[in-house]
């Protein structure tokens, strides 16, 4: 699948934003948010900025962004529509939580808003993942663990941002440190398992099935239907990424998982958190962008059986 930069930025930024929102809401809910109101306000602003930037970036990839309101209508059947609804709905409790943090207010209301924000953040990331996981045409996406990976990566990247925020505010990471580390390691384990599984899966559909005449044997493309690639080939047949997949996967393991995990562990041990975590967040951001690029570039689409792919 063609890796559209707008969608890569969207899923990475909004994933981290919703992850951070989730951590902040949990901290507010259990009353463990240190640093008075301003750290909470700064965190909420950062999270909402990431989410909003991501959503705007994904709207830019639409042919008709001005009609985007229509995307709220089909939540009965469409995960994309459900994502839109969940994303919009999450703004309400998140905005309330931000206002209450800034100006103070009834703590029962704040707790309720925090609970709804955490649920909304998790639901939105879940819907994003289901958009991909529900597509039976793409075996690299049509898997249960795709949903878990999206959730784990949002939790891990949001956790890193949350730890960085605490460190910049001059606070100890407390329980957030080990929990973020655990999320990071869980995501790494899921992703490594995922790669092994998609490599071992040859694909359920063959070119013989696509043409429907298995008695005739295996078809070979003779004359192409068009002289240059059409939309279907450009959008669904992207294969540049597969050439470098092994190297890029190693890069992801290093930049997204190993480096941030080591830096996070070091900052827990040394207490010298802020500079280490800045590096960790930057490394994870680069790693996440490559991870998301690969998620698209490595994905094979069944329609390519008509264009020379043997199995998908």
């Amino acid at each position: 699948m063609h890796p559209a930069y707008s969608v890569i930025f969207f899923t990475v930024a909004s994933g981290a934003g919703y992850g951070l929102l989730f951590w902040l809401s949990l901290a507010a809910l259990v009353g463990a948010m240190p640093g008075g109101r301003w750290l909470m306000v700064a965190g909420m602003l950062l999270a909402l900025a990431l989410v909003t930037f991501g959503l705007l970036s994904s709207a830019r990839h639409l042919g008709h962004p001005e009609r985007a309101l229509g995307a709220f209508s089909q939540w009965r059947s469409s995960w994309l529509s459900r994502e839109a609804v969940a994303a919009a709905a999450t703004y309400v409790p998140a905005g309330l939580l931000l206002l209450l943090a800034a100006f103070g207010g009834a703590s029962a209301v704040a707790s309720f808003a925090a609970l709804l924000t955490a649920l909304g953040a998790a639901a939105t990331v879940y819907c994003t993942a289901r958009i991909y996981a529900s597509l039976r045409t793409i075996r690299h996406w049509n898997r249960k663990d795709v949903v878990w990976i999206y959730l784990a990566l949002a939790l891990a990247s949001g956790g890193l941002l949350f730890c960085l925020l605490l460190a910049l505010g001059g606070h100890a990471l407390g329980i957030a440190g080990p929990l973020s580390l655990a999320a990071l390691l869980a995501a790494a384990w899921l992703k490594a398992r995922y790669w092994a599984a998609v490599d071992a899966d040859p694909g359920a559909y063959t070119v013989e099935m696509a043409l429907g005449m298995p008695d005739l044997g295996t078809p070979r493309p003779l004359d192409p239907p068009h002289t240059m690639p059409n939309f279907v080939m450009r959008e669904m047949g992207y294969s540049v990424g597969r050439k470098h997949a092994v190297k890029l996967r190693r890069g992801v393991l290093l930049a997204l998982f190993a480096v941030p995990a080591v830096l996070l562990a070091l900052s827990l041990i040394t207490g010298l958190s802020a500079p280490l975590l800045v590096l960790g967040v930057l490394s994870a951001a680069g790693g996440l962008l490559v991870e998301r690029w690969l998620f698209f570039a490595e994905a094979e689409h069944v329609s390519q059986l008509y264009y020379g792919l043997q199995r998908a």
Binding site: L62, P65, S78, L80, L135
Partner: peptide
């Protein structure tokens, strides 16, 4: 249609 292209992703026949 908002041109999100998702329907084309869901079609196995291209």
């Amino acid at each position: 249609c908002i041109g999100c292209k998702l329907c084309s992703w869901a079609c196995p026949y291209g």
